[in-house]
Amino acid sequence: MAAETSCLEGHRLTHSFRQGESRTTVLHDVSLALWPGEMVLVMGPSGSGKSTLLALLSGLLQPEEGEVLIFGEELWRLRPAARKAFRQRHFGFIFQGYNLFPALTAREQLEIVLRWGEGVPAGEARTRADAILDLLGLGTKKTLRPAQLSGGEKQRVAIGRALVKRPTVCFADEPTSALDWKHGQHVVELLRAAATAEGATVFIVSHDARIIPYADRVFHLEDGYLDSHDLAASAGMGTP
């Protein structure tokens, strides 16, 4: 990548959880920088600390040691309200479950993010929601509720919800784990395309090796240690 400044950086992140009497360190001294517009994948087996890393980088969990910089600003130096406002402006999230409101239509799931998050007027929120749903191939499903959608479609709505506000960084935790590969692949392709269209940096953590070809850079996390070697570069895969 030729970009001159990183948009998000984790510096020597260390984190542990208390388990009964003892503390288990789940991340050791992890450093990572994300560049604008790229798609970064962190691979690792279950329990290796991927979700924890995502939580630290995205400001959902405070690291025990180390710092998170976004555009050079230290995330955990901010007051909680400012940090939340920061998330509102810059971050999108895709979680393992779809976590869609059962009562709301696909379009409404996206609209509330715009209307409640940044006070976008109803008409504009609707236009923007529709545009991204079209992009995700959900043009005919806008008025359907989660119960009427397949797993892959629900995950696409969740992607739409993450991207509709045009975030700087979109975080995705195991976005394909609930889907068979046919649908999983489709979802990753769409995520990649939509993120490119919206200019978002995408940070995916997953144990699913089939995502590797879609990522610009791929790192391996094992027992809380991040291998700084870029697997995508060495395998000659992904975009240059």
Binding site: S58, L60, K84, A85, F86, R87, Q88, R89, F91, G92, F93, F95, G97, N99, L100, F101, I112, V113, W116, G117, R161, A162, K165
Partner: peptide
């Protein structure tokens, strides 16, 4: 029962008073 949905909105930075 909708805490997961609200948690996503919280993560997305939507003000709690809105919810």
């Amino acid at each position: 029962s909708a805490w997961r949905e609200y948690a996503v909105l919280e993560a997305l930075g939507i003000p709690t008073w809105r919810m």
